[in-house]
Design a protein around this nucleic acid. Structure first.
Lengths: 193, 193
DNA sequence: AAATAACTACCGACCGTTAGTTAGTTTGCT
DNA sequence: AGCAAACTAACTAACGGTCGGTAGTTATTT
């Protein structure tokens, strides 16, 4: 389908160069068609942009749901760590991750309101899985009994930190930051022996 | 000085709308001059952009150095917490913070190399102060003896997480995230009683 | 002290290019 | 034949940047 090809290429360009830094000519060239042909599939540049955003949000939530559901290890500790690693990897390896972060942090000013509205529709969808993990950990005496909301927010903050670092530092540096952040985080919530 | 006025207004616009989203006409209009007059003070749009970046990096490093040097409290715990809070506040309250994060995470592609080069000149300048804090904490038996580099990296990751959140979530939500992140972080490095 | 030269900051007009978008037409498939 | 999807051509608006000229100030000369 041409529509998918357009969205895929648009995503790559929007992710790397931003909304203002990406022209319809650029997109058309990569797709292999002429610029006006884009209008057979999308009403405007904004419409195309929003279409890619929608895909990105959905892909992100789907990935988190799927990948966490498929972790077949025993301890909560390894599950949480793996969730952290795989989510970070997802954000770094795909254009989706770059687009996700860019849209959330620095959307085009005039589209901001609209974007926030759409984001809030997806936000919170991943909470349940993590909450379940923390509850399991407390039950199995791996994690200190305490306010799960605090654990959750701290975990998200760690995730956001790693995600951000991935756009600034080298792979090796991010890896060591992830290890350090995780180590201190886990030490902060685990039952010490 | 006109140069400073130009840089100030350019900073605000670049921070909010990015490089591609800001035109020289926009900048000139806010300064109160016409576009060609800008060229009496800067050779090109890129030159103006780099000038503002330079200012931003210097302002950030200066702020961290100053504000941390002026904390007059006793315990390492409150010092660290205050460092976290004030740095986060700095990043959120000024356009400098927005510019700082935007430039580091999503610089204009063709300027990326140059920007990274300049960033690395500033990077690491703040390390010493934090390392000193951790060492003090270990000596005073507030912090567990351990790898200080891990503490430092974990702290930076927390800081990056909070900084990122400030561009995504509401003030209240960020505040609760900061508290949660800090609580778990400190619990992860402190000597528990 | 008057005249001149030099310099700075600014502006209007304009250049070539590219942006997003529209209209009208052709292609190719069913 | 009909229809979606591609095309060419062209539009207006805006982009970054240049040019020639003009005020206003400063420095130098006579």
């Amino acid at each position: 389908m041409t529509v998918d090809k357009i969205k895929k290429n648009a995503l790559e360009l929007f992710a790397e160069n931003g909304y203002d830094g990406t022209s319809l000519s650029d997109i058309a060239k990569r797709v292999g068609i002429k610029k006006p042909s884009l209008y057979n599939h999308f009403d405007s540049k904004e419409a195309l942009y929003f279409a890619t955003i929608e895909d990105v949000f959905r892909a992100y939530v789907d990935y988190v749901n799927e990948s966490l559901a498929n972790i077949k290890v025993k301890t909560v500790k390894t599950k949480l760590k793996q969730a952290l690693v795989s989510t970070a990897q997802f954000l770094s390896s795909h254009d989706i991750g770059m687009m996700y972060m860019r849209v959330l942090m620095f959307p085009p000013m005039d589209l901001r309101e609209n974007i926030v509205k759409r984001f809030e529709l997806w936000e919170g969808e991943t909470d349940e899985i993590y909450i379940q993990l923390f509850e399991d950990g407390i039950k199995s005496n791996e994690i200190q009994p305490g306010d799960i909301q605090i654990y959750l927010q701290a975990f998200y903050t760690l995730l956001d930190g790693i995600s951000t670092d991935m756009f600034i530092y080298s792979k090796e540096k991010v890896e060591s930051k992830l290890e350090a952040g995780w180590m201190v985080f886990w030490n902060g919530i685990c039952v010490r022996k």
